[in-house]
Simulated scan of single mutants.
Amino acid sequence: MKRSDIPYLDDLRAFETTARCGTVRGAADELSLTHAAISRRINRLADMIGTPLFERSGRGLRLTTAGDQLADVCRRSFDDLSRTIATIREAQVTEPAAILLSCERSVAMRWLIPRLSQFQDAHPEIAVHLSVGGGPVDSKQNRAALALRRLDFEIASGWSVVPLFDETIGPVMSPDMRSSFDQGDYIALGSNTRPDAWDDWLRLHPDAPRPRERRMFDHHFLMVEAASSGLGVGLVPHIVALDDINRERLVAPFGFDPDGSRYGVLHPSQIPLGKDASLLLDWLRDRSRDI
C-alpha cells in the first residue's frame, strides 16, 4: 500500500473518537464538530477501505470486525503520536527550565533546605523551585520533575523510582532531658502522621523507660523543635534530627532503628530527565549517603 493511499488523518480521528466514545454525538462533542461532519468522515473512511466499520445495535453503534481491528491500531498509533510530540516539545525548550522539586514538608525543612545552597553554589545556572507535598503523586496532575518521598504507598503508573536510603527512627531529646528520660519522667512527643510509632518502638525496646505522658504534633519538624527546646522526647526519623544531633542540640541514646520503609526520588517515566534534573538527582543521591 502506497503512503498516498493512507486515509485522511481527520477521517481516522473521527472514526477513532466515535469508536472510543461509542456514539457519533459523543465524538462530535469531543472534536467540536457537527454530527453530520463526523458521519461524513466515517462514511468516507469506510468507502476508501471498502467495508463497513460500524453496524447498528439498537439505538447505538457497534464496531464490525474490521472496525474493531482498525480502532485498535488507531488508538495505539494516536497514543504513540502523543508521546512522541510531548518528547519533542520537551527537547525544543531553548531556555533552561526551572526544575520543580517536590519534597515532604519535614524532610524539606530539616534536611533538604539547609543543603540546597550547596547545589546552587555548584550549579548557579540551574534554577530549582521547591514545593512541599507527601504521599502518592498523580502523574496527570503533578508534573514535578522530581519528587522526594517516603515510599510507604503504592507508586502510581507513569512514575519511575530511584531509591535513596532506608528510613530509621529513634527517640531524641535535649542533653538536659537525658536524666529524666532514664528515670521514666518524660513526655513522649509523637506525630499524627504516625500515631502508633511509640507503641511500636516500646515493643521493640521492652527495657526502655516508659513515658508518663504523650503529646502529638502535626509534623515531625515541629516535634524535633519541641524536643530541642526541652518539651519532651520526640520519636523521629533520623533524617529530620540529623543536623541537631551533629550540633549536639539533641542526643539519641538508643540510636535509630529501621522501620521497613525507604525514601526515594520519583520522576515521570515518560518524560526523559534533562541534564539539569539528572545533576540534581545525582546530588540528592550523593547527599543521602551521609544519612
Results as ranks from 00 to 15, higher is better:
D218I: 07
S160V: 12
E154H: 14
L130N: 06
P175A: 10
A188Y: 00
P253V: 13
A86T: 15
D286V: 05
A66R: 11
A71G: 03
A197C: 05
S191W: 02
I42K: 06
T94S: 09
Q141H: 12
G67Q: 07
I88T: 14
S106Y: 12
P209M: 04
S77V: 05
D152T: 13
R20I: 09
T23F: 05
R89M: 08
S82V: 04
P268A: 12
Y8S: 08
W159T: 03
P195Q: 06
L279M: 09
I6H: 02
R115Y: 12
D72G: 01
R62Y: 04
L33C: 07
F254Q: 04
F153L: 04
S131H: 15
A27H: 05
N142T: 09
D29K: 09
G190E: 11
V161S: 06
D276K: 04
Y263E: 04
G60Y: 14
D200H: 03
E154N: 13
Y186S: 00
F119T: 11
M109K: 12
W111S: 12
D166E: 15
S179Q: 07
V73H: 09
L53E: 04
G50P: 13
R214D: 02
P195D: 02
D138W: 13
M1F: 13
F165L: 12
E55G: 06
D243A: 08
L101I: 14
I155H: 04
W198S: 02
N43K: 12
M48Y: 05
R262D: 08
E55A: 14
A147C: 14
E16S: 11
R247G: 02
L231A: 03
L222H: 09
G50M: 02
D259G: 03
D257N: 12
W201P: 00
H205G: 00
S4K: 15
D290S: 12
P175F: 08
A14C: 13
L250K: 08
R25P: 00
I126A: 05
D5M: 02
G50D: 08
R194S: 01
G255R: 15
P253W: 11
I85S: 05
T65M: 10
V224M: 06
R210E: 00
I271R: 06
R25F: 05
E248R: 13
S261I: 11
K140R: 15
A97Y: 07
S191R: 03
F221E: 06
R289Y: 08
A66L: 11
A127K: 11
G134S: 15
A156E: 14
W111I: 09
V172G: 04
S102L: 15
A122Y: 09
A98I: 10
D152S: 14
L146N: 14
M1A: 10
S117C: 11
L70Q: 01
D290K: 13
A108P: 01
E154M: 12
N142Y: 08
P211M: 01
P206H: 10
V132F: 14
E225V: 02
S57W: 13
S82Y: 01
D207N: 10
R62A: 13
T23V: 06
